[in-house]
């Protein structure tokens, strides 16, 4: 019989994992919601961000949490430039081109990482790596607790930006009515690139939250991107709330699934949910907000 004392920590653990999933998925869903493109490069960009965080720590001695704003800014620029001068230019307005271009970018980044850093798995140790936060019901490693809180904080900031600022309104306007947007003077290409930039800036932040409790290798993006796609589909393509709730739900599913089925099969539950969802509720839990 399963003890409650084991289940509860497992759920808490899942929530901390899920918050980071949610963050990665938020970037993906934002880009999908506005540009209507599925960004296959999302995972490899996260991987690149993890390496950036790793080398900032290993080379410059920069604590990942301190590096977070820096990396978010740097990856914003990367994302903006990618969309504005590579993806947007190469797409010629065709969705299938975008798919191929983002897929190509992901292959290029991944192999470049393989070439430069080889397939080694690397981890870092921070002063708090082995510290535990005692919640009473569960012991949570500090990096996980910080990741959870920061992920929710960033999600809130993102929500506020999208819902309450002129930029956010412009992003939502462009998502649905490009011609109308041009006629109020919105520079549509600029807003597209901004959206893509925000989506990748989130990855820069997510990488800094992940690294202290995770590892980095050239294929690490795949671990997350598959889950992030599941989260996005679960929550509803383009839905902000959906990505958040979906991310937490998937994190808990994985963690509790791992408890029942063993660590190796923890992700099984995620994909069972994914397939069931596609069969019975393809629009996801929250329909579509941005799109």
């Amino acid at each position: 019989m399963l003890e409650f004392q084991i289940l509860l920590p497992s759920i808490v653990n899942g929530l901390t994992l899920g918050a980071v999933y949610a963050l990665v998925a938020l970037g993906l869903t934002l880009i999908y919601g506005v540009l209507h493109i599925i960004n296959f490069a999302h995972g490899s960009l996260l991987m690149a961000a993890l390496y950036a965080a790793f080398f900032a720590h290993a080379g410059l001695g920069l604590d990942p949490y301190l590096a977070m704003p820096l990396l978010a800014a740097a990856f914003f620029v990367v994302g903006y430039a990618l969309q504005r001068w590579v993806i947007g230019k190469a797409s010629h307005g065709k969705d299938q081109n975008v798919l191929l271009v983002t897929l190509g970018i992901s292959i290029a980044i991944e192999n470049l990482a393989l070439y430069l850093f080889r397939a080694d798995t690397r981890t870092i140790e921070t002063p708090i790596s082995y510290e535990m936060l005692d919640l009473g019901i569960a012991l949570v490693p500090y990096p996980r607790a910080i990741g959870f809180a920061a992920a929710l904080g960033i999600a809130a900031l993102l929500w506020w930006t999208i819902e309450r600022t002129d930029l956010g309104r412009a992003i939502r306007a462009v998502a649905k009515e490009r011609q109308g947007a041009k006629l109020v003077g919105i520079d549509v290409d600029h807003v597209f690139a901004l959206s893509f930039g925000i989506g990748t800036a989130v990855l820069g932040a997510a990488a800094c939250l992940l690294l202290p409790s995770f590892y980095v290798s050239p294929s690490v993006g795949n671990v997350f991107v598959l889950v992030a796609f599941t989260v996005v589909v679960l929550g509803g393509m383009g839905s902000f709330t959906g990505a958040l709730v979906g991310g937490l739900a998937i994190g808990v599913t994985e963690s509790v699934g791992g408890l029942f089925l063993g660590q190796q099969l923890g992700q099984l539950g995620i994909f069972v949910i994914f397939i069931a969802l596609l069969l019975f509720r393809p629009t996801g839990l929250f329909g579509s907000r941005l799109a």
């Binding site: 009515e177 006629l183 109020v184 003077g185 919105i186 941005l290």
Partner: peptide, 24 residues
């Protein structure tokens, strides 16, 4: 220009549509 077919932002509220009118 107020275009043919209105081209309002269907997913935004009336208030937000008007605010965006002053975007530029």
């Amino acid at each position: 220009q107020v275009p043919e077919g209105r081209r309002v932002f269907p997913n935004l509220s009336v208030r937000e549509n008007l605010l965006l009118g002053a975007y530029r």
